[in-house]
C-alpha cells in the first residue's frame, strides 16, 4: 500500500450535450478550450489534472471562481463523473465502484464540508451530525454517542438539540465539520468551507481547523479562493486556472518561485516574513566573493530554518551580519542587513 491516499491521473471533465465527442476530439487532436467550445458547444471544466495527496497531508487547491476547483473536488467522491482519467481514493478506482460500494465509501471514508453548509434544516444539530451514520444503518444509541463526540471536537457541546437556523453561520459551519468527522473518515473534502463567513470568524475557524487536523491526522483536500488561507492551512498548494493545475508546491515554493505571471500576481500581496527562512536568502559562507567581512566570534547565529520575521528581530540587536547554521551546528551562510532587506523585498 502506498502512502498516497488520493491519486488523480490525467483527469478531464467536459460539460455539454456532446461531451463524449468533444473528449474524443481532445484526445486525438489535442484541441484547446476555445476550439472545443466553438466546435462542440462544450465547456472544458477540468483539463488534464494529475496530483497525489499523501496520508494526513493537507492539500489546498487555490483558484478564482470558475477555475474548476469545486468541480475538481467533486470528482474525489464522484459527485461528478470524470470524462476521462483515473480517480483513486484509498486505492479504490472511484469510477469502478458499484452504486452500493460508492455509497458506502462516501458514508464511511470520505467526509465533505460545503461552502453553504448544506445542513438539513428540519433536523436538530445532533441528527444532522449523525446523518452519515444513519445512512450506514448504525443503531440510534451509537449514532447519538458519536455525534456528541463529534460536536465536542468542534466545541459545540450544548447545542445538540437546536435547529441549524438557530445557530450563527460560523457555528453552522462547525456543525458541517462535525458531520464530516462523525464517521471518522480517512479523507476530508473541504469545499470553500470558510468563504461565506466574516473575516474574524473565518480566522478563528481556520486556526481551530488546523489544530483539529493536526490531532486527527486526516488526509484533507481543501478548496479556497484565498491564497492567505491556503498558505496558513496547506502543507502543499495547487494553483488552478481555467481547469488546469499550473503549479503544485509548498507554500514557500509557491511564494518564492511562482511558476508564471499568473501565480506571481497572486503571491505579490502575500507577506513572506513567515514563509521564507534564513536558508533561502543567505549567502554561502565559503563564497570567496563575499562583499562583507565576517567576525565569526562576535556575530550572532541563527538556525537555517529561522523565519524572516525572527531574523529581523535578531538583526535589530546587532550591527554585525548574522551567521546561519545548519542542524549540525555548522556555519553555512551569512546574512547582512542588505541581504535581509533584499530578502524581505523578495529579491534574490
Amino acid at each position: 500500500m502506498t502512502t498516497d491516499v488520493i491519486q488523480l491521473e490525467n483527469v478531464w471533465k467536459i460539460f455539454g450535450d456532446r461531451a463524449e465527442e468533444a473528449m474524443q476530439a481532445v484526445k486525438s487532436e489535442g484541441l484547446d478550450k476555445a476550439t472545443v467550445l466553438e466546435r462542440f458547444g462544450c465547456v472544458v471544466g477540468i483539463a488534464d489534472v494529475s496530483f497525489k495527496v499523501a496520508r494526513s497531508e493537507i492539500f489546498c487547491i487555490m483558484g478564482l471562481s470558475g477555475s474548476g476547483k469545486s468541480t475538481l473536488i467533486r470528482h474525489l467522491n464522484r459527485l461528478i463523473e470524470p470524462s476521462a482519467g483515473l480517480v483513486k481514493v484509498l486505492d479504490q478506482d472511484m469510477s469502478a465502484l458499484t452504486p452500493n460500494a460508492l455509497r458506502e465509501t462516501r458514508a464511511k471514508d470520505i467526509g465533505m464540508v460545503f461552502q453553504h453548509m448544506a445542513l438539513l434544516p428540519h433536523r436538530t444539530v445532533a441528527d444532522n451530525v449523525a446523518f452519515p451514520l444513519e445512512v450506514q444503518g448504525l443503531p440510534k444509541a451509537e449514532r447519538w454517542e458519536t455525534s456528541m463526540h463529534a460536536l465536542s471536537l468542534v466545541n459545540l457541546t450544548g447545542y445538540e438539540y437546536r435547529l441549524p437556523h438557530q445557530l450563527s453561520g460560523g457555528m453552522q459551519q462547525r456543525v458541517g465539520l462535525a458531520r464530516a468527522l462523525a464517521s471518522d473518515p480517512e479523507v476530508l473534502l473541504m469545499d470553500e468551507p470558510f468563504s461565506a463567513l466574516d473575516p474574524l470568524i473565518r480566522h478563528e475557524l481556520q486556526n481551530q481547523f488546523v489544530q483539529l487536523t493536526k490531532n486527527l491526522q486526516k488526509t484533507t483536500v481543501f478548496i479556497t479562493h484565498d491564497l492567505d488561507e491556503a498558505i496558513r492551512i496547506g502543507d502543499r498548494i495547487a494553483i488552478m486556472k481555467d481547469g488546469c493545475l499550473i503549479q503544485i508546491g509548498t507554500p514557500e515554493e509557491i511564494v518564492m518561485q511562482p511558476a508564471d505571471d499568473y501565480v506571481a500576481d497572486f503571491v505579490k500581496g502575500i507577506s513572506n516574513l513567515k514563509l521564507i527562512n534564513a536558508h533561502s536568502i543567505m549567502l554561502a559562507i565559503n563564497d570567496t566573493t563575499l562583499p562583507i567581512s565576517i567576525d565569526k566570534t562576535a556575530a550572532l547565529r541563527a538556525d537555517e530554518n529561522t523565519s524572516l520575521e525572527a531574523l529581523i528581530d535578531l538583526s535589530v540587536t546587532t550591527t554585525l551580519p548574522i551567521i546561519v547554521t545548519n542542524d549540525a551546528g555548522q556555519d553555512i551562510g551569512v546574512i547582512s542587513k542588505d541581504t535581509l532587506l533584499k530578502g524581505i523585498k523578495g529579491e534574490e
Binding site: A107, P132, V135
Partner: peptide, 12 residues
Amino acid sequence: SIVEGALAFGCS
C-alpha cells in the same frame, strides 16, 4: 446544495 450534501454522505 442540500441534496448534494446528503448525497455526499452516501444517501440512497
